[in-house]
Nucleic acid binder design. Structure first.
Lengths: 342, 342
DNA sequence: TCGAAAGGTCGAACCGGTTCGACACGTCGA
DNA sequence: TCGACGTGTCGAACCGGTTCGACCTTTCGA
């Protein structure tokens, strides 16, 4: 394997000069720079990542801690991955992906061994047990998902409270009086998925303020359970004319359920979901939805993380908690309610 | 940051002895081993990955080259990722994930810089342009997907030919005479997705051998186009009583299409897909299918790759091309045909 | 009783980069 | 004409591990 010494020799300069010529960290004469570049080219030189990391204490790698949980809906995860990897690549970083179920030890190993310059945590729970490990690490971290305690990290999340309000108010304006909200399974909440509560509580408050009835329920995250749940719900609340979904599996299962019951959207029932546009296309979902923007969140997290890594933010710059404003994508699945659903 | 020198000093031994005590590469007295371990523990020592990689020329990282292509169906990809990351972790390796659209340069950078000990390529095309780069690299590689030229790499793929035969023969046994096969979009083929042809040609041969009619067509990979395609197909071939799907998007869209046309499965139409069981659950697809086993393929690729990296295979051991046998998962979507579909 | 072998430890070199201080020029102003 | 300064290059040290050969004990067999 060709190293920088070979390049230097071929160019007739010292190792240090070759390094300066290639990294540009010190002035080098045009002539020498050319010779070194030429030699590097011809020999097919690529710097050894380990050696460079050792010398600079920078690896140009970002750790990505995802968790592939059986009770969260898988396809949504891929969009986070994509947003993160694409952005990292644009900024000159590689991605070390960990899907270890034990996020704590994976995070500790990755940061302590200096394999990465910083870390993005996906799917952050309210009391995420990875956070103490992250704070003890020397590398900066960016989160997707809002924990209770945001000190020492940059945080990005959808504004789930605004999302809950927007859903309810949209249907209230159309004249609906009784709504159903289907959330993620209860153990997502128990595990600390506070976004479920944030949306639900805001929705309940908005409903109370407008004098609406809002039934809330936790749905399953898998087929065929979620289908049963939806049927049971529609049976239990025949007067409800609006359905809000904060549960991707429910959204994916809904078309089949509604067709079987011969319920027409939006004539018989108005529906609003909370998922990404790409998700809607993949499952050909015809429902208006709050855009959950996973790619944007991934992108924002990486951008800010890189700014921290490269110290482009002044030390005084405080840590950031930034909420993405939920946009309602109109797919025509809401309308004024008819007198009764049946 | 605490390094091995600190540990050695705390334990009262030389740096080299501390290294031997921790790695076990030379005999060390029990007493010293204990002292060193104790010191490492108390100081919270973690070896610096860059330094170790530099010294050993081993990084304990596997490169994973995926491509998130807009014309392939995203949710299937996640299962490969999961199979690969889980297996790698079990074997003590981390995953460097690249989703760079330019796989060639990403692969070259990753291997030349010795960031990784080996590479797994997903979604390998028949004439994959990453293969020359991989062969020029010093690290071993394992492929998921069958290229034309398999020299110098280990290859794992579903036996698509057997899959095509199995689909046709299964329906032939039930008495079907006219079938439709919906494949991936044509530009997947143009890009070198030979598995489309492998399945299709084997299906055509099997159909010819049994005297069946088999209509083949390339479907779209996205909604709503694939829905239109399916409707057009069913219009064009009213006599067909069996539908074979080698196109995930088509499978996902089919329930809606069939319900709208009031076609009952399997009474009016028998259906067999080619996708994973997890995929079937996610989309609640009621169709029998050839299991595509992405997690198994990912696992096999990593296992073999690690064997090569760790030289557990004798040099004489030839490179492997291994096909996963397609299992038909019966979900009750096939039956003897009725006289006519209409 | 002596020598060889085995077991355990140490110091030094090495992996391949980066970076610091020193130095050799040439240029410019006083 | 001299010194200060800026520019470009070099050698050496360093990052933090691993590994090789040498050396010192101890043990064992002849």
């Amino acid at each position: 394997m060709v190293n920088i010494g070979d390049v230097a020799r071929a160019a007739g300069v010292a190792r240090s000069t070759a390094s300066y010529a290639l990294t540009g960290k010190r002035a080098v004469s045009d002539e020498v720079r050319m010779r070194v570049r030429q030699a590097a080219m011809e020999l097919g030189y690529t710097p050894n990542a380990g050696a460079r990391a050792l010398a600079t204490s920078r690896s140009n790698v970002i750790g990505l801690l995802a968790q592939f949980l059986p009770d969260e809906f898988a396809p949504a995860m891929l969009q986070y991955l994509q947003g993160v990897t694409d952005t990292a690549r644009d900024l000159g970083y590689d991605i070390l992906l960990s899907s270890d179920a034990d996020g704590r030890s994976a995070l500790k190993r990755i940061t302590d061994s200096r394999m990465v310059d910083g870390v993005v945590l996906l799917n952050v729970a309210e009391d995420d047990d990875r956070l103490p490990v992250l704070r003890a690490a020397l590398q900066p971290g960016a989160l997707v998902g809002l924990p209770r305690d945001c000190t020492g990290v940059d945080v990005f999340d959808l504004d789930f409270e605004e999302a809950g309000r927007a859903m309810v108010e949209h249907l209230a304006r159309l004249g609906h009086r009784e709504l159903i909200l289907v959330s993620q399974p209860e153990h997502v909440v128990e595990r600390g998925g506070a976004y479920v509560w944030r949306l639900q509580n805001a929705a309940l408050e908005a409903a109370a303020a407008k004098g609406l009835t809002l039934h809330t329920v936790f749905g399953a995250a898998t087929q065929p359970d979620i289908g049963r749940d939806l049927n049971a719900l529609l049976d239990a609340h025949p007067g409800a004319t609006g359905l809000l979904l904060n549960n991707e599996a429910a959204a994916a299962a809904l078309p089949t359920v509604l067709r079987a019951r011969d319920i027409d959207v939006p004539a018989d029932l108005s529906v609003i979901g909370r998922y990404s546009d790409e998700f809607a296309r993949t499952f050909s979902l015809p429902y208006s939805s709050i855009e959950s923007a996973p790619d944007r969140l991934g992108r924002m997290a990486v951008r800010q993380l890189v700014r921290r890594i490269e110290k482009q933010v002044p030390e005084s710059d405080p840590y950031v908690v930034r909420f993405v404003h939920p946009e309602l994508v109109d797919r025509g699945s809401t309308a004024a309610p008819t007198a009764s659903r049946q």
